[in-house]
Nucleic acid binder design. Structure first.
Lengths: 240, 240
DNA sequence: CGTCCCGTTGATCCCTATCAAATGTAGTGG
DNA sequence: CCACTACATTTGATAGGGATCAACGGGACG
């Protein structure tokens, strides 16, 4: 089991691992398993026994729930540096969702038991975990608020903005989303259908707000998109 | 400042406070402030500085967010034994929502600083907090899934079932929800309008599934309601 | 006994899901 | 290098679930 050299540098800037002494970090790294994922591979599946928790080093994952009726929704995306699969830490037996790579990814995995060790060894780690979960709870509440009160157009606009925010690259034309994404997936993020998403994106493409190809989206005008996300701009923004 | 006698018994069965030595519990109780709330009173308001966290001893609260446009949504209800207002523990400066009594209530409040003391004194306390927040995150994801994929009727049915589950009393006619609740509030829980809720409840009343008066709801047939929550029963459930 | 809320019920409209094809685009294997 | 296949996207037509607009009725409380 000769692990590749895992550097402390991987973890020590990762929020929850901050404030841990180097010795602890080293010991933690020794128990880590490296987890390589090709696009489409799952780190784990909904309902599986929550045996491990993970940190994403590189790439991008989506967290997916399937409803009893077989529909999918995307709960969130996992970015490099994020912890995921903390089910056991929340005292869940099984993972409540599947986590799937949307591009080639690299993660570290630890046996769930290691969690308790970490928490008891460092109150800061526990505090970091609470903060992380708390942030996700905030995000979830935001989405609930949006799903409850906003129209599809605003929700889709907001979803794009979040993607730009969390993982996009500046290009000549604008901010390009770093990983391949389909209309179907955007629909699963916003509680609508791929048809409606397609129509919206087509309209926005006509207005020069975005560019898009197969599984690629570039946001040209973040401002106009933010405008749309706020509210329906009254067709005539006042001759002013 | 002669506090009423606060018994350890109030806390020691409260999940997060379990596993704390009696001496610690006593010391914790000494720093608690008693917080009495009349119906309609707020423990704190959205946007206020998160100076305290709370435990509800008796009564019932609702956690409410207002959107930029002034619409309200009910994030969750707080039941006796629940912790609320943990914003500071999640490193939020301000409370992200208001918390308002829907009936006369009694709570304990601690200065936010006490949180860190608790976490560092007891890893179990930290673990309990993570579990609590994790459970709420699960619940939030369930709601997102429902808002994304289900129809209004199912969502309202499910909301009623949850209320029955968490705070109802068996009466002659069925399970009566313990606190006053309006159609408007149910609408705010389910992302719809009071009109639609009223229509649904009227229909269900006709079918003998519920009884309702002003701000009062009794569920007579939990089974039929669960049926409705699952899916639209095809008008003819098959002559079987 | 009047006023304030809360609840009920019509009528109408419109956003968006659904149904149905056609077109485009990558990848594959011959 | 091209035909073939699988998957993504686009676009039209249609229908329907709920929101919205508008009144009215009824119980509680001062």
């Amino acid at each position: 089991m000769s692990q590749p050299q895992l550097s402390r540098a991987l973890l020590q800037n990762l929020g929850m691992f901050r404030n841990l002494p180097d010795a602890d970090l080293d010991s933690i790294l020794q128990h880590a398993r490296v987890c390589r994922l090709q696009e489409g591979d799952a780190a784990f599946l909904q309902g599986e026994d929550a045996a491990e928790f993970f940190v994403l080093l590189s790439g991008r994952l989506k967290v997916v729930q399937v409803t009893p009726e077989g529909e999918q929704i995307i709960v969130r995306h996992v970015n490099p540096g994020d912890i995921f699969g903390m089910a056991k830490a929340m005292s869940r037996r099984q993972y409540p969702a599947s986590t799937v790579a949307v591009q080639e990814s690299l993660a570290l995995a630890w046996p769930a038991a290691a969690w308790d060790t970490l928490v008891s060894r460092s109150p800061q780690f526990a505090a970091g975990a609470i903060q992380t979960v708390g942030q996700r709870l905030q995000d979830a509440h935001s989405r609930i608020r949006e799903l409850s009160t906003e129209e599809v157009e605003q929700r889709v606009a907001r979803a794009l903005l979040r993607l730009v925010e969390s993982s996009s690259t500046q290009t000549l034309e604008g901010q390009e989303i770093d990983f391949p994404i389909t209309r179907q997936e955007i629909a699963e993020m916003t509680g609508t259908t791929l048809h409606t998403v397609s129509r919206l994106l087509s309209a926005w493409k006509n207005d020069g707000i975005i560019l898009s190809g197969r599984r690629r989206i570039t946001v040209c005008s973040v401002d106009k998109l933010a405008q749309l996300a706020r509210a329906e701009p009254p067709a005539t923004p006042n001759a002013n």
